[in-house]
Simulated assay, not measured.
Amino acid sequence: MIDAYAGRALRRLRLRWVVAASVSVVVTALAYDQFVDRFATDLARRWLALSAVVLVYEFALLWRFLPRNRAGEELSPSLGPATLLTVVRGVLVAFLAGFLLLPRPTESLVWLPAALYGLAALLDYVDGTIARLTDHVTTLGARLDVEIDALGILIAPLLAVIYGQLPVWYLLAGAARYIFVAGKWHRRRTGKAIHDLPAGPASRILAGVQMAFLAVVLSPLLTPPEATSLGVAVLVPFLANFLRDWWHLTGRLPR
């Protein structure tokens, strides 16, 4: 009976995945039409190509994580409003990625990259709040949230470096989480101990500060000298938190 229920729930989740993916395709097509009107066709195609690659990656992650849509032991057949908001965040981050292959927007579109990432960062706060209010906090939602956060913090600094707003060394912000995950995978593969990380809000707060800073630095509000100085103040504690977590994970620091 339990297996049959889980099977039905998973089929319903996959149907919802198809609906979400289809809506995202339609929204992307509409956005592409707008880009064709604003940019040359070849530039719009570049934007579409990279945005589509990122979208495929995000929806592949969502498909992979569907069996984790659990608040307890039972698989939930509904993604829930919070996870759907996280999917929307993923679409915004994918649209931002498309700008990596374009010249920096000017005139009326100069604020668009900052607006895309700023809205994604704002929804990062909203989706967690909604998950708690609706009592639909799932392993799937938590994992997808982390993946979208990491992808945004990878893409936004790269775009800021391309725009000349930040120096190349700021790419460490985007690489930090992936280096951490690779190190954890290597320890597990080689049979080394992996210790639990301490609970606390520090990581979420620092990630929120990082996203807010990146949204501002993608806008015309900051010029490179001021952006670099402020970037140092934001990046150092962000990287220090990853180093602290690594020391906890490897047992160098007690919980």
Rank of each mutant, 00 (worst) to 15 (best):
V18A: 15
A150Q: 09
A94C: 04
L253D: 08
A160V: 07
T250F: 01
R11P: 00
V217F: 02
L243S: 10
F95Q: 11
G128H: 06
W246T: 15
W169E: 07
T86C: 06
R38C: 00
F95R: 02
V126D: 03
I179F: 13
L50M: 12
T86Q: 02
L133V: 12
N69R: 10
F180V: 11
E73G: 15
L10N: 06
A9T: 07
I179V: 15
V209M: 13
S229T: 13
L79Q: 07
R188D: 04
A4E: 15
E147I: 03
G141P: 02
V54K: 04
V217C: 00
L122G: 02
L75W: 10
E73A: 12
V168P: 00
D124K: 06
S78C: 01
A115R: 10
Y57W: 11
I148L: 07
A114I: 06
R8M: 11
D145R: 10
V137M: 10
S108K: 11
S229D: 05
V234M: 03
F238A: 01
G152L: 01
P237T: 14
V146T: 13
P103G: 10
A4Y: 08
A142F: 03
Y163A: 06
F59M: 08
I155T: 02
A182N: 09
L171Q: 08
A193M: 12
P237M: 12
L221N: 00
I205M: 10
L123P: 01
R188P: 01
V87D: 02
P201C: 00
V217A: 03
V236M: 03
V25Y: 08
A176C: 03
L116F: 09
G98W: 06
P225S: 05
M211W: 04
H248P: 03
R68N: 07
S108Q: 14
G231H: 04
K184L: 15
A21K: 02
R70E: 03
D37M: 13
L253F: 14
G98S: 08
V126A: 12
L222T: 11
N241P: 02
L116C: 04
G152D: 08
V146C: 00
A29C: 07
P224E: 09
H248S: 04
V232S: 00
P254N: 08
P103F: 11
G164H: 08
L158F: 11
A131I: 14
V56T: 12
T223W: 04
V91C: 09
F65K: 11
L109N: 11
L55S: 05
R70P: 02
L221C: 01
L101A: 14
L230R: 02
L214S: 01
E107I: 00
P105D: 13
L85H: 00
A6P: 04
A121W: 03
P81E: 08
L140I: 11
A240M: 10
A202I: 13
R16V: 05
I205Q: 03
V88M: 06
L166S: 05
A193V: 15
L79N: 08
T106G: 14
P167T: 13
T138L: 04
V88F: 06
W63S: 11
H186L: 14
